[in-house]
């Protein structure tokens, strides 16, 4: 991780704390914190019902992977259920939002006409649609997928619109000067120039979808990471809830890490624009 520590205010340029490299200090911090937590629970200062010991959390971790919670539903089943839902909703949102965003972004009239609707729809909290989705589409999978799609949709749409609007006029003029047809102009100039923003929108959208799914899974299902922690709450099993949260955190990190990598592979021109322009 790069940080701009070149500040004259603090002469702390060495990157070493108490004579140790920064990474070591960070690891030590985690170890010490977990150690304190373990000791406080052992001593009975922290209520073990609320703050289970880290050693118990590790044992539970293993139990979740092998036996599962509720029994028989291992953490892999939960993760799979969540992934399948996110992917379905996400794909649905992307398929609708990207063409729509391109159309809106390239047309002044459409942009004007949809702007208030988009602004308002974006300010609606996705979760507040949960009761409505349940009434309309039942408590099944369809409701969950549609809610995820709704959450992702607006992020992808607004970013696509922004991207399509901000295509450099010089590119378009240059392409026109070379007498490109309208279809060619769209597929060879506008679309590639918009892709970085579309990707940014897809990244934000996935983040939103990830947040939505956790809440949505808390209602009416026992499969999924959100369901796992909600079930744990019903049975007052804080160790399972905390382990579930750790799984959710790791899962979220994995998603954003993969997307960053993917962006560099698929869209090299979005990152090193300056290097290409000589």
């Amino acid at each position: 991780m790069k940080r701009s520590t070149k500040r004259s205010v603090d002469q702390q340029k060495s990157g070493r704390i108490l004579g140790m490299p920064e990474q070591a200090v960070k690891i030590a911090t985690v170890v010490v914190l977990i150690g304190i937590w373990e000791m406080l629970s052992q001593a009975g200062i922290l209520n073990p019902l609320h703050f289970p010991r880290p050693s118990k959390l590790i044992a539970t971790f293993w139990e979740l992977v092998t036996v599962g919670y509720p029994t028989g539903i291992t953490v892999w089943v939960h993760i799979k259920a969540t992934v399948v839902r996110i992917l379905q909703g996400y794909a649905l949102a992307a398929v609708v939002a990207i063409p729509m965003g391109l159309a809106i972004g390239r047309s002044h009239l459409l942009l004007r006409a949809t702007n208030p609707i988009i602004t308002f729809a974006r300010s609606i909290a996705v979760i507040s649609l949960l009761p409505l989705a349940i009434v309309w589409f039942g408590v099944g999978e369809l409701s969950r997928i549609l809610l995820i799609a709704w959450g992702c949709f607006w992020a992808i749409l607004t970013n696509t619109v922004q991207g399509a609007r901000q295509v450099d006029v010089n590119y378009i003029n240059a392409a026109r000067m070379l007498s490109t047809s309208k279809t060619q102009l769209f597929f060879r100039v506008i679309l590639p120039a918009t892709l970085p923003r579309i990707f940014a929108g897809m990244k934000i959208g996935l983040g939103v979808g990830f947040m939505v799914i956790i809440a949505v899974e808390m209602v009416g299902t026992i499969k999924g990471l959100g369901a796992l922690i909600q079930q744990a709450r019903f049975y007052y099993s804080s160790h399972i809830a905390i382990d579930g949260m750790i799984f959710i955190g790791i899962f979220g990190l994995l998603i954003s890490f993969t997307l960053d990598r993917l962006e560099r592979i698929i869209l090299p021109w979005a990152v090193g624009l300056e290097e290409v322009e000589r």
């Binding site: 990830f210 947040m211 959100g226 922690i229 744990a232 709450r233 949260m245 979220g252």
Partner: peptide, 18 residues
């Protein structure tokens, strides 16, 4: 930074337990 990747909504069950 370790806690940050957990979305706030995932805290609902443990918040209720606590």
């Amino acid at each position: 930074e370790l806690i940050r990747p957990i979305p706030p909504l995932a805290w609902i069950p443990i918040a209720i337990i606590w």
